[in-house]
Structures are given as structure tokens and as C-alpha cells.
Computed example of a mutant assay.
Amino acid sequence: MRGENKRSVIVGIFVFLGIAILVAGVLTLGGQQKKFVKAIQLKAVFDDIGGLQTGNNIWFSGVKIGTVRKINFYGDSQVEIEMNVEEEVVEFIRKDSKATISSDGLIGNKIIIIYGGTTLAPPVVDGDRLESVMPLDTDKMMETLQVNNENLVEITGNLKNLTSKLAEGEGMVGAALTDSLLAESFRAIVKNLNQASVNSNRMINELNSFTSKLNQKGNLFNDLVTDTTMAADLRQSMESLKEAAANSEEMTQKLSTITDKFNDPNNSVGMLLNDPEFAKSLKSTLENADSATYNLNRGMDALEYTWPFNKGFKRKKKEEAKENN
């Protein structure tokens, strides 16, 4: 009798512990899924939920605020999600908030994230439908990553070929890296460039010094730039030079006309300068005149000794002798 009572007590204890564990589990699961808190229902429509299931969590600003209550087909090919959201956070979710589907970790369960919303919009109420935003398609992301990986492999292969050619001294760059003579030539070019840079800097310094001297007061260039009266004088001088140039041009034209006339054998001067027959005749005339003058002088000398003029010349000599005394 005592053994049966003892067995009954042990069985009762195990049954009690089982019931307690069951109740604790139910309470725990219910607490995690927000089964025993006041909640409102919100809805969102997606084209593709990507494996979202009933009971998955709903997050807002990094805080779990509810679970997925029900999944229904909507329209032609869309899916409507009914969400249980805690009533105590409703005041923070606005009617212009958005809902999207994400993952809990890299490969975790699907979750719904509510985000956005402004204080200009009122808080949501039971039965409101939030605007849905389609998440990134992981399949497309993987395809893109695959393409990027293939491109990366191709780029790596090209870099390998390039570095091998450089190591073997192929091409200009490879020759520059492996040919010592080319390296020396390049070094000489760099040296010459450095020297040219030094010379350029020196020339620039000299130009700066020259311009600073030109800018000193009393310098002719500075006076030309700053003195307004000198500028007026220069302008007047330029006008005078222009006038003189115009007069010179006019005089040149007149001289050209005169020289043209000198070259014209139809006038007396042109005939004197250009007619050889007239020049020959003039020369003969001058020779005859010279000969006549010579004969005249001889006749005058002989006239002194002729009888009619002998007394007159003697009288003239006496008067000249008296004047000399």
C-alpha cells in the first residue's frame, strides 16, 4: 500500500513538472510572438515575399514589435501580409511609414522591417495598409556577383600576363624596368629636366627683378605707363610723325614725277640728260667755244702790239706804275 502511494506521488510530481514545463514553454513562445499583448493589425502588399512565413518577426527601428499573423493572396499575383503590431508602439508608426522584407542575419529567417514616416502624418490605426517597398532580389545579386567574379578573374589574368611581360622586359615599360642603359638615359633626361626647371626658375626670377625695376618711379617705362602728360606728348609726337610721314610721301611722289620728267626726252632737261646726239652736239659746241676763246685771248695779246692800240696800252702801263708807287 505504501509502495503504491509512493509511486502515485512520483507520477504526480512528474506530471506536475511536465505541465509546468509546458505552461512555461507556451508562455515563452507566446511572449516571443507577442501573443499575450494588445495588438493592432496592419497590412502590406508585396509582389514577392521571398519565403516569408506566418510567425516571422516584425521590426521597427531595431526593436521587435510584432509578428506576421497571416499571408493571403491579393489581386492577380500579389501577396497581402497581415501583421500583429503591439499597441504601445503604434504612436511611433506613421501612416506614411514603409514596410519591406529583409533577412534576420545573412541567411536567417525573413522578417518585415517598418521604417520611415514623418511627424506630419498621423499615427496608424487598426487595419491601415502601409506602403510596401520591394527588397533587393538575392538571386539577381548573386548573378551580379557571379559576373563581377568572372570579370575579376579576367582582370587578374590580364594583370598576370602584363606583369610577366614586364618581368621579361617586353614593351617600353618592361625595357625601362630591365634595361640598365635605358634607365641611365631616363635618368639623364630627368636630370636635364631638373636643370631646365632650375633655368626656368632663374629666368622667372630675373624677369621679376626686371619688371620690379621697370615699376620703379623715375624709370622711363614707369613714366610712360603712369605719366598722363607724357602720354599726351607722345600722342602729339606720333601725330607729328604721321604728318611728317604724309609730307614725305607727298614729296616722294613729287620727286618721282620730276625724275620721270628728267627721263622724258621730250623736254629740255630730259633731252640734256638722255639725248646722246644732243649731248654730242653740245660737247662740240663747247669745244668750239673753248677754241674761240683761246683764239680771242691770243688776238687780244697781239692787239697790244698793233699800231692803232700801241699808244693806249703804253698809257695804261704808266698809270698802273704811278698807282703802285
Rank of each mutant, 00 (worst) to 15 (best):
S180W: 02
M141Q: 14
M238Y: 10
M172L: 13
L136Q: 14
F186N: 12
G116A: 03
A175W: 00
T178C: 01
V225L: 08
V225I: 07
G218Y: 00
L182C: 03
A175E: 15
E206S: 04
L159N: 11
K160W: 00
T144Y: 10
A121I: 00
I113F: 04
N222R: 02
T119I: 07
L130V: 06
M238I: 13
K217M: 01
V133A: 14
F221Y: 11
L130G: 09
K191P: 00
Q236W: 06
A167C: 03
E170C: 03
L181T: 09
G127F: 04
I107P: 01
D126T: 03
K213T: 04
M238R: 15
L214P: 00
G169D: 05
S132P: 13
V124G: 05
R129L: 11
A176G: 10
D233Y: 02
L224C: 03
S209D: 09
G174S: 07
E168W: 02
A175D: 10
N161P: 00
E154K: 12
L159D: 12
L130H: 06
A232K: 14
Q195N: 12
L207D: 12
A176S: 03
Y115W: 09
E184L: 10
N192D: 12
I113Y: 08
D233L: 08
T163H: 10
S237C: 04
L182H: 09
S212L: 06
F210S: 06
M134K: 14
G169F: 00
V173D: 01
N208R: 13
L181I: 06
Q236M: 10
G171L: 05
E154Y: 06
L234S: 06
E184W: 03
K217R: 10
L145M: 15
L214K: 05
L182V: 09
K191W: 08
V190A: 15
D223I: 05
S180G: 07
L120K: 11
K110I: 02
T178H: 09
L159C: 07
I204Q: 11
L193F: 08
A183F: 08
L120E: 15
V190K: 15
R129F: 07
L181H: 03
L166E: 13
V190H: 02
R187K: 15
S212W: 01
L177A: 03
M141W: 03
V124H: 05
A232R: 13
L181V: 12
P122H: 07
L162C: 07
R202F: 03
E168S: 15
K110Q: 14
I189K: 15
T163V: 04
A121D: 11
M203E: 13
K165A: 05
E184G: 09
M142Y: 12
D139T: 15
N201A: 11
V124Y: 02
